[in-house]
């Protein structure tokens, strides 16, 4: 499972960086969301994977019985997902506006701010 996740994360990162380096602004946005997904999965995987052991406190005791899945990375990922939801929505709106105001879809042509 760990190996599978590692491969998925690696694939997402490479796909993300590849897409960012393309010239189309739409691909850029897709690449950015790939990057954030990859980071989310990385946080999830780095926290350690425990199968089928929900961190629930059994009746009558004060702490869950180890080994149990660490709930914190999941909470972190949830927060990060919410953030990336907002950011992606904004980035989409920005791409839309950029395309409307500049009429450009090619990142290499967005060079008016450079000189």
């Amino acid at each position: 499972m760990n190996l599978l996740l590692a491969i998925v994360i690696g694939a997402l990162y490479s796909a993300g960086f590849y897409l960012i380096l393309r010239r189309s602004i739409v691909k850029l946005i897709i690449g950015l969301s790939f990057l954030s997904h990859a980071s989310n999965l990385l946080v999830f995987a780095a926290g350690g994977l425990t199968r089928g052991r929900a961190p629930l406190v059994p009746p009558g005791s004060l702490a869950p019985v180890p080994p149990y899945a660490d709930p914190l990375p999941q909470a972190l990922v949830l927060t990060a997902i919410v953030i990336s939801f907002g950011v992606t929505a904004f980035a989409l709106a920005l791409v839309n506006r950029t395309y409307q105001t500049t009429g450009q879809e090619d990142i290499d042509e967005l060079r008016r701010t450079e000189c």
Partner: peptide, 25 residues
């Protein structure tokens, strides 16, 4: 155009920051 560059680079940086936090944890 300026916003576009600003947003892209900062999002990449955030993704790296988050990845670093994940591994640190």
């Amino acid at each position: 155009e300026g916003a576009f560059k600003y947003v892209t680079l900062n999002l990449v940086s955030s993704a790296l920051f988050l990845a670093g936090i994940g591994i640190l944890y």
